[in-house]
């Protein structure tokens, strides 16, 4: 076991390699490691935030859904009401129209009856005059007996 200058050589080599390691090796790898640590931390943070956001979004969605349901129920209610109203209005209109048509028809019938009656009355008057003329065999002064004839016709 000889002690010799190999010791000194090894000391120089030692400090040389430590220096190389400190300058060339350690910083880039530690930087990469720290960056990765930060990335992972950020990732976990983001995941936390995302899950919180998701919860909020779900709550908001549920709220919106509830609102929408309420809205739609209101709209359906309104629509039903409106439909009933329209049906009622239509019924009312139909009834009125029917009544109007009936009234018109009745008026016409009334008018025709009156017309027929008037005609009949005139004919009866003429017939009565003709008959009376024949019975009396003389001409009757129509003007003189107009009052009488009118009374006769009204009584028919």
């Amino acid at each position: 076991m000889n002690l010799n200058a190999t010791i000194i050589g090894q000391i120089f080599a030692f400090f040389l390699f430590v220096w190389f390691c400190q300058k060339l090796v350690w910083p880039p790898i530690v930087k990469a490691l720290e960056e990765r640590q930060k990335k992972i931390a950020d990732g976990l943070d983001a995941a936390d935030r995302a899950s919180r956001d998701l919860e909020q979004a779900q709550a908001r969605a549920a709220e919106l859904l509830k609102e929408a349901k309420a809205n739609s129920a209101g709209i359906i209610d309104q629509a039903n009401k409106r439909a009933n109203q329209i049906i009622d209005e239509a019924k009312e209109k139909a009834r009125e129209e029917g009544a109007r048509i009936k009234a018109g028809a009745q008026a016409e019938i009334e008018q025709q009856i009156n017309q027929a009656r008037e005609q009949l009355r005139q004919q009866v008057a003429a017939l009565a005059v003709a008959g009376a003329e024949k019975i009396l065999e003389r001409s009757v002064d129509q003007n003189a007996h107009a009052e009488l004839l009118k009374k006769l016709a009204a009584s028919l």
């Binding site: 390699f17 190389f20 390691c21 060339l24 090796v25 350690w26 910083p27 880039p28 790898i29 930087k31 990469a32 490691l33 960056e35 990765r36 990335k39």
Partner: peptide
């Protein structure tokens, strides 16, 4: 040692 570690350090990725 320095060679291997340096070559890795040069392309060290944080991915």
């Amino acid at each position: 040692f320095i060679g291997i570690f340096r070559s890795v350090a040069k392309k060290a990725t944080s991915g």
